[in-house]
């Protein structure tokens, strides 16, 4: 999944980014609301993890702005504000979940997973397509029972195709979901990644369908 972290504390932003990357997510980190807005408008995130106390405008106001702009990306508030009224305020404004600092990393990861399941068309974590077995939760892929090691970007592409099973996943969707905002993707790099993915999990080309000029699909 592609996740945006909005946290002004550099150390916490960096360590969260590293943790989520280690769990196979594509992660961008914004340090203030202005940067976060810019990222959201120019990329496509599955989840936003947002601190409330930001230097320019606070996380509540930013969430409200995003919702007013019609951006429905699930938002997890991650904040030191632990009063009931703050939680209610955050959830009423449009946040999907609320975690108070200090938090347990496992809890944050579990909540991200839960939201991932909610937004996916596939409600199960374990998906079987022909001889391919994908565990979206533990990010393990097996082909004919053999473990296949996929780099984060390839897993992200596969995850997008699986989560949108039966639907076309466009190039833009894949650029938005599987490339960090600082990376500049091209059709060639995407094709090269798909080629590599097919080589690892679909050498017969029966699973990933190419829709010329549009994108890819898994049925």
């Amino acid at each position: 999944m592609k996740i945006l972290i909005v946290e002004d504390n550099i150390a916490l932003n960096n360590s969260l980014k590293e943790i989520l990357q280690l769990h196979g997510h594509i992660v961008d980190g914004a340090f203030d609301a202005d940067e976060a807005l810019n990222f959201v408008e120019n990329s496509s995130y599955d989840i936003i993890v947002m601190d409330v106390m930001l230097p320019d405008i606070d996380g509540f106001a930013l969430t409200k702005m995003l919702r007013e702009k019609g951006i429905k990306t699930p938002i997890i508030m991650l904040t030191a504000k632990d009063q009931l009224r703050d939680k209610v305020k955050g959830l009423e404004i449009g946040a999907d979940d609320y975690i108070t600092k200090p938090f347990e990393v496992e809890e944050l990861l579990a909540r991200i997973k839960a939201i991932g399941r909610r937004i996916s068309t596939e409600k199960e974590d374990l998906i079987k397509i022909e001889d391919l077995e994908i565990d979206l939760s533990s990010r393990i892929v097996r082909k004919n029972g053999q473990l296949v090691e996929l780099p984060p970007k390839l897993f992200c592409i596969l995850e997008q195709l699986v989560r949108n099973r039966g639907k076309v996943v466009t190039y833009e969707m894949l650029y938005g979901k599987c490339w960090e905002i600082t990376e500049i993707p091209s059709n060639e790099t995407l094709r090269a990644n798909i080629k590599l993915l097919r080589k690892l999990i679909d050498p017969e080309k029966t699973i990933i369908k190419t829709l010329s000029g549009m994108g890819y699909r898994i049925d």
Binding site: L12, L22, K101, P102, V105
Partner: peptide
């Protein structure tokens, strides 16, 4: 309590990364 929460979170996440 509020000001201790962020450093505790940072220590927590860094410990998690060290174990990982």
């Amino acid at each position: 309590s509020h000001d201790l929460k962020t450093p505790i979170s940072i220590i927590n996440t860094n410990l998690y990364l060290m174990k990982y």
